[in-house]
Computed example of a mutant assay.
Amino acid sequence: MTYCVGMVLDRGLVFMSDTRTNAGVDNISTFRKMTSWEVPSDRVLTLMSAGNLATTQAVVSLLDERTKARELRDPSILGAPSMFQVARMVADTLREVIEEHAEGGQRADSTFHATLILGGQIAGSPPRMFMIYPEGNFIEAGKDTPFFQIGETKYGRPILVRAYEPDMSFEDAVKLLLVSFDSTVKANLTVGLPFDYHLYEVDSFRLGRQGRIAADDPYYEAISRGWGDALRDALHSLPSFRL
């Protein structure tokens, strides 16, 4: 299982993903699920993936290879004129990989399914974020849906819905995401640390702050412990039910 969140803020875009892959209780590994591309002064793209690991790695590899090819019939994701066109290319590549491996064509419930979050900015346009489905279609984040989750979404969603604010700082956004991820880790052992993150500043057109948060990270430990204590205190402060 996987948990990834992409969030649109006034300040820019925030990405966070876990790194656990699970093929059974005795086969748990760590793989990076976030990939970024940069063309300085022109564009920054970040892709996160959930689903079949072979599928998602093949998608990333194909996208990467096509950015390096000297002769292309169509522009690569590093030459596309808009984020919408980039989303179409990524969606087509995902569908291509799934159809190649699934007998009888691509199916959403196929063993080879995957879901992606794509976000970034191309010069001349505002930052945009998309969620791309196994079928090859996609939706875009907006004011009514300012963040996307993929993978194990249900445990970490309540805090995002209650606490997200578009004008929050990157620092508060990371804090919020760590609470969301910690809630998910506590409820589902197939999601685990370390967590990767990328903070993209609007109109910077360069990779932003990136890092990895390990299980022994002091700040993460403080967030995890503090959130648990805060929930208990909040519960005790509520009026008791009268029998």
Rank of each mutant, 00 (worst) to 15 (best):
L238S: 15
H113K: 13
G105V: 07
G24W: 03
R88K: 14
S240H: 15
N188W: 08
F181N: 02
M89V: 06
T46I: 10
T145P: 00
T111M: 13
L53M: 13
L177E: 05
L189W: 09
A80R: 10
S180I: 04
H113W: 12
W37K: 06
T55M: 05
D26Y: 08
L72F: 02
P218F: 07
P40H: 09
F195N: 03
G211W: 12
A102T: 15
F15D: 02
V14Y: 02
M168V: 01
V97L: 00
T115K: 03
V59N: 04
P194G: 07
G119P: 04
D26F: 11
T55W: 01
D217E: 06
L231T: 01
H198G: 04
T35S: 14
R73M: 13
D18M: 11
D229H: 07
D92M: 10
E171N: 07
D233M: 11
Y220L: 15
L176D: 02
I132A: 03
K68I: 01
V8W: 06
M1N: 07
G226I: 07
V174W: 00
D172W: 08
T67L: 03
D144Y: 07
G51V: 04
C4P: 02
V44K: 04
S204E: 12
G120E: 05
F130Y: 15
E171D: 14
D216P: 04
S82N: 04
A123S: 10
M48G: 01
Y164T: 03
D109F: 06
M34H: 12
M83T: 05
Y197V: 05
P194S: 08
P126N: 09
I213E: 09
M89A: 11
R232E: 14
M16E: 01
V86R: 06
